[in-house]
Design a protein around this nucleic acid. Structure first.
Lengths: 143, 143
DNA sequence: TCTTAAATATGATTTTTATCATATTTCATG
DNA sequence: CATGAAATATGATAAAAATCATATTTAAGA
């Protein structure tokens, strides 16, 4: 449903959200260690996110990754989209091609409402909201 | 979250639930085709389910797979357990080791309630209930 | 402008998951 | 009791996901 890569990416973005800023860029090795993800692996993911404009970066000395004002207005699902592709977020539990409200598979009604609210929650929450939650003790770091 | 193999297994069990009985066993090739899963692959899964007593089988001529009275009193999550292992059904969205109600990760509250009801639904619904649903038009076959 | 520190691009390797193949065992039936 | 039809056991291959390695490009600062 959601890949390992996406999870790593989310953790990294959350880390950046809390610890970085335009004036305080962070380089991969200082991200990889605290979030406990192999450095070359998270590097690749961060590069992909940067290319797709979900996070910001600059090269060279004093360079690194950070989140701009625009970046913190993204939500978590956008990260998943970039890493995993659009694919199966809306997909049927059994991955059936033709399953929908009109023609539901037998398990459709068991999971659909729950998943819909889950998705709504994830899409409605921006990165900056999550940072606020952390500050208010509603979610804990480090990851 | 849930593997391809589990999905195939569920489809096969559903198929058996509707089409088989102790007097009408079905052999793998007659299951594989209608549910659209490669024959050798579904064979392996069915064997595993049979070994773990979630479905029934007999060998030899006139043999095949079917669901006994006991078998139709199972729920879908039991199938997933057998195929995927216990692992991540209760796991944190970000696969964090130490995430729980007391010490939630930032996304915990966004998904946890939804997932809990989803799981409750899946565990509460028995195979025989699903068959009833299909008969009452609340879920469609074929898959 | 040269050196160095960082991201970036590209691709290789490893591990896991999915798929396929084959030989063996069991059972019904003639 | 021999034959053939079925599941079962085991393992091989292929595809995908995760992980790792290296050469290139960019930018800051001496």
């Amino acid at each position: 449903m959601i890949s390992n890569s996406s999870k790593y990416a989310i953790k990294a973005v959350l880390f950046l959200a809390v610890h970085s800023s335009e004036e305080n860029k962070i380089m991969v090795k200082d991200i990889a260690e605290p979030i406990n993800v192999p450095q070359p692996y998270i590097a690749k993911l961060l590069q992909e996110l940067a290319k797709r404009k979900l996070i910001s970066s600059t090269r060279g000395p004093k360079g690194g990754f950070y989140l701009s004002e625009a970046d913190v207005n993204r939500n978590i699902m956008e990260i998943v989209h970039v890493i995993d592709g659009e694919k199966k977020l809306n997909a049927c539990f059994l991955s059936l091609e033709h399953c929908n409200e009109k023609n539901p598979c037998p398990v459709h009604h068991l999971i659909n409402a729950s998943r819909a609210t889950m998705m709504k929650n994830l899409k409605g929450k921006l990165i900056k909201d999550l940072v606020l939650d952390v500050k208010n003790g509603k979610g804990k770091l480090p990851l």
